[in-house]
Each structure stands twice: as structure tokens, then as C-alpha cells.
Write a protein that binds this DNA or RNA. Structure first.
Lengths: 342, 342
DNA sequence: CTGAAAGCGCTTACAG
DNA sequence: CTGAAAGCGCTTACAG
């Protein structure tokens, strides 16, 4: 079979049928020859078919494949907001693992708003996603019930919910690590900027911190544990509230680096130095943390690993197995915002 | 027609055929009744069909629709890396506009690597995307030629290329705004951390800056214009190089806020204060810029608007019209990193 | 206004 | 090892 030079772009895209016609074989033969591990086709046929397919720039039509097989090879992911580097990093892990497994990922921002969350979920389901990764779970969110009812496989990432398959880091332990570090430096007058406590991340990091303090005989007043949104602005406001209530705190734990950055801004505005007047710790170990004028002590929450593991869990689910929920080990990263000599 | 209570989740998902059977009408009638603006169907039929569709939780199968109509209602977007808040913000604009128009967006990281770029492009094309937004163009990238050859509509966002449809901000002007600001403060000994000069953003912001300086009679030595990757680490290294060559620069312009953050770290390590010893300006006006211990002077590059406009341009293209390339107006945001009293 | 039919491109069980 | 057929769920031009 001689192959005509293809007049680039002009002709309509190659299909199994067009290849079959050109080769004088049946479309089903072409289809078989093009599967990853062809079986029941002669090696020579495979070679000829693949050569022409490459020549013609053939690309399998995923819509047709999806319709026929009932699997779209697309998974959906719901995140609070992708401009948050924390979320974007988890997504990076998900996407890498998804691509490696032949899946594409459709992400959607839900801005932690219930209405938007269910609207975007609907859109994902209409797109026939094979499964979903939820990185935006809040204690009051009900999308998991919708998913259970619809029978769509899903895995929670980063934020967990009781009795649901989920992958995250051990946030209780992460909070404890920070507490032990600050206690070891002699701090007793401490405050927590807790983040969104409807998210298990904010709640458990805070809880782990408070537990460890209590175990050391230090009780932290309730009004010095201030919830806030997981962003710079909201962190700044929460810090202001704390300093109004107790201007003499010597250490602040923020449950995310972005929140810590907001706290830093407020401390600056109030003329308090870090760590001279106030020691400050964040969480997540974003790139930004190391680069700040005063490098930030924080906890590495292994966000790419979380994303990758969540996708692997979902793949298990898609194969009909039951993946175990996992809690990865967090790691304390000590820098100058808590210890000047770091 | 009475509607049986649906046994949630258990039964297989509703299709046009299942609805038609249940109502005793033809599938084509159901299809027509469910289009946004039904024509050639009686109002009463529309009502009955829609009621049952809602009751049964019917969702149009997008794979089937795509196969039949030849349009997937999915667009692809190539970005260097979504963990860069700049890119994530452009994506947010694209996604918002896409969703409003009934499109889903498939994003892919290309890490500014040619090989990965063409691999991910291939995957997008196999998914039958209707069009593509390229936010990762470099002067040496050839994917646009591939796209031209394949006849796929595309729009460049943020980074431009000669003679291609593109939406961005006026980076020449943005660079000029920074130069005029610094010149106005009396600086003459200045340096530029240029970012990736294969990207039009890095190249033009730098060019605009240098032009304005030259127009004011200030020439900046070539070795004080240092290219780097658009990230914190690389910005830090470039700043070190600059300070090694001229320890007495009084002002540095970084073509992105992340790069500026890296410069800040190096200045800290060298014991130089900002703006006392060195004035520093960034670009993009990320949230982080305002929160830094020394709030950062920067240029608002209207990233969400860029994303939204790029998607609108692509929609025009999909309708067969030729959208004009656009350059949005940047805006200088002065903060304390250049003027202590700001 | 409604029905009947064709067909988008693919995969897969069934023959031979 | 190859062919022929059916069918995934939808849309749309064509009849009536």
C-alpha cells in the first residue's frame, strides 16, 4: 500500500472508517489494530494500520469512544478556588496521576458556596465524568450525599468528612507539631488564626494545636482562637481581632501560609516585629513562605502527594476496589519567623 | 400522565429514549422540547416533557451530543503552570466566561517545555476541543503552526506572538509606567529582573521600561538587565547576579510579583532595606503584593479581564467571525516598596 | 406539531 | 485472524 502525501489541514480529520477504506480492510480490524495491546490481529496488519494512522494524524474520537463504552475517561474535580496555590498544587498532583492513567481532568471553582458547588457538580455529571475528586468539602456540605445517591465514585482530597473515602495529611498531628515547637521555645501566651473551621483542615490543625497545649498545661482562651477565610485579607482581620483582645500574645499559629501572610501584614501595621515581639507559624509550606523577608516557619503538607494519592484512590474505586482512606505524615519546617537563628 | 416516584439512584440514568417511552411520544419530540428555545413543539408538550425530565433527573449526554453535532462544547487551555497565581487568575476569567457560554474548560500545565506542550496539545485535540486558549506562548513555540495546520480556532492570552489573535495588557506601556514612576523619584542607577524574555510579557515590560529610561536620558547597562524564570527562586538568583555586578543600584524592576518576592529575599540576605537602600517594583498586583511586610509597588495587569476577553474572542472565532486582538490598559499601583510615605 | 429515519465514530460479541 | 452487525444517546432534515 502506498500512502498519498496528505494535503495538510485541508482534508477532514481521519477516522477509523477513512483509514479502513484507504487500506481496504474492515473498520473493526483497524479498531483492533489501534488498541494498546492488540489481540486477534496479525502483527503485519497492526504495522500497516499504525503506519497509516500516524501518517494521517489519526486521533481517536473520544466522544464516540465515550458514548460506546460508557466511560468518558474524564474525571471531575471540585476546588474552592484554583487561585489558591494550595488548591492549585493539589490539582497538579491529581492532574499528573490522571494523565498518566489516560484520564483528563475537568476542574471547577466552587468558592465554598453551596449553590455554586451543586451547579458545577451538575455540569460535571452532564459531562459524564467517571468519578470526582472533592477538594472543597465542608462539614455542612451535602454534595457527597448527592454523589452517593447518583452512585458516582468519589474521593475527598485534603479536607475530609466522617466515614467517606479521603486522602489528606494528618492535620491533628501537624497542629501538634507546631504547638510542641512553640512550647519548646517557651511560649505560653499564644493565639490561633484557625481558618475555616467547617473545613477539616482548619478544624483539625487547630484542634491538634490546642490539645498539645493543654497536654502541656497551657490553656488558650477561646477568644484567642479566631476562625477566618483561607486568604490573606481574612487572616489580617482575624489577627487584628486577636491583638485587640490580647496585645501581649507572644506567638500566633495560622492554619495556612496565606492566612499567615495576612497576620504578618497586621503585625507590621501594629509595629510588632517577627519573631522579636511575636513568633509566627503558618501551614502548607508554599514557595512563598521561604522567600518572605522573615522566612516563615510552617508545616509541609505534601500537597502534590495528596493530589496524586487521591487520584490513585479514585482509580481503585473505578476498578471496583475499595481504597483505604489515608493520612500522610506532615513535616515541620522551622524558619526564622519563630526562631531568629534558624 | 402520572409520574412514578423514582427509586433514587437505583435505576439507570434517564435518557431521551427512556423519557419518550414513559411519555408515549417519540424521542425526537422529547429532544425538541428540551432545547433552550423549543420551536415546532406545543407549549403543553414542552411542559410535560420538562416536568418528567426534572423528575427523573435527566441530564443530556454530552458525549452523544458532541458526536452528533461535531461540537464538544469543551475548550482547551494551555498554561505554563497553574500553581502560578498569575496563570490561575487568567484561567479563572476564562472559565467564568466559558461556563456562561455553556462551555467546559480543560486546562493543562506545559511547564514551558516544548515536548510537554505538544503532548498535552495532542491530548486536548483527541478530546475534540472546539478551540484553544494559549497562555503559554513563547517566541520559539511552534504549536500555533500546528493549530493553524489543523484548522483549530485559538486565541493567545497574556503572552502574544506576532500576527496571531491575542488578548493581553499593554506590557510596553506597563513597563513605561514603572520607569516613569522610578525616574520621577530621582532614580538613575537601576536594574531590571526581566523574567522569561521569550515570553512577550517579560520582553515587552522590559523593553517599555528601557525605552522610557532612554527617553529620559538614562541608559541602563546590559548586564543589569537579567532574564530569569517567572518564579521566586529564579528571581532571587537574578537579583544576586545584579548586586554582584553593581552593589549600588538604587532601584530594581521585576517583571512579575513572584520574581519581585525572590528579589526581596536576596535583598534581605544582603542586608539591604526596601525602599531605604533599594526601591523595588513588581508586576501583576497579586493579593500577596499588598500584604507583604513592605507592600509592593506593582502594575495591575487585569488578569481576570484578560482571561474573560480571551474566551470571548475565542467564542467569536467559533462563530466564524474574526475577533480583533486587544491590549487592555495596565494601571500602576504605588505602595511603600518604592515610596516610604505611600 | 409530531413521527420515522439516518448517522455522528467508535467498540465488541458473534460468525466464519 | 478478519468481517459484518448492532448499538451507545443524541440531533436534525424530511415527511405528513
Amino acid at each position: 500500500v502506498t500512502i498519498e502525501p496528505s494535503s495538510a489541514g485541508a482534508r477532514s480529520p481521519a477516522t477509523l472508517t477513512s483509514l479502513a477504506r484507504e487500506l481496504g480492510v474492515h473498520v473493526s480490524t483497524v479498531s483492533r489494530a489501534l488498541t494498546p495491546n492488540p489481540k486477534g490481529v496479525s502483527a503485519s496488519t497492526v504495522a500497516v494500520v499504525r503506519r497509516l494512522a500516524a501518517e494521517r494524524g489519526y486521533r481517536s474520537n473520544q466522544a464516540a469512544r465515550a458514548l460506546r463504552t460508557g466511560r468518558s475517561l474524564v474525571i471531575g474535580m471540585l476546588v474552592p478556588r484554583l487561585t489558591d496555590e494550595v488548591q492549585a498544587t493539589v490539582y497538579e498532583g491529581v492532574d499528573a496521576a490522571a494523565m498518566a492513567a489516560g484520564y483528563a481532568t475537568l476542574v471547577a471553582n466552587t468558592l465554598d458556596q453551596a449553590e455554586l458547588r451543586s451547579q458545577r457538580l451538575d455540569l460535571l455529571l452532564a459531562r459524564q465524568v467517571d468519578g470526582i475528586i472533592l477538594a472543597d468539602s465542608l462539614s455542612d456540605s451535602n454534595v457527597v450525599d448527592q454523589l452517593d445517591a447518583a452512585g458516582i465514585p468519589y474521593v475527598l482530597a485534603l479536607r475530609q468528612l466522617p466515614d467517606r473515602p479521603s486522602i489528606g495529611t494528618d492535620d491533628l498531628r501537624g497542629g501538634r507539631l507546631v504547638a510542641e515547637h512553640l512550647l519548646g521555645l517557651g511560649h505560653t501566651r499564644m493565639a490561633v488564626v484557625a481558618g475555616d473551621t467547617r473545613a477539616s483542615t482548619g478544624a483539625e490543625r487547630t484542634q491538634g494545636f490546642l490539645h498539645a497545649c493543654r497536654a502541656a498545661g497551657i490553656d488558650i482562651a477561646e477568644h484567642l482562637v479566631v476562625p477566618c477565610g483561607f486568604n490573606v485579607r481574612s487572616g489580617a482581620a482575624a489577627a487584628a481581632q486577636i491583638l485587640d483582645k490580647d496585645p501581649d500574645v507572644t506567638a500566633i499559629f495560622a492554619t495556612s501560609d496565606n492566612v499567615a501572610l495576612g497576620v504578618l501584614g497586621t503585625l507590621r501595621d501594629r509595629g510588632r516585629s517577627v519573631p522579636g515581639d511575636v513568633a509566627l507559624a503558618g501551614y502548607n509550606n508554599l514557595d512563598m513562605a521561604a522567600a518572605l523577608p522573615v522566612p516563615l516557619t510552617t508545616v509541609d503538607s505534601r500537597l502534590v502527594d495528596v493530589g496524586r494519592a487521591a487520584m490513585h484512590g479514585l482509580l481503585e474505586l473505578l476498578l471496583g476496589r475499595r481504597p483505604a482512606s489515608e493520612r500522610l505524615e506532615p513535616r515541620l519546617v522551622v524558619r526564622s519567623s519563630t526562631t531568629p537563628d534558624a
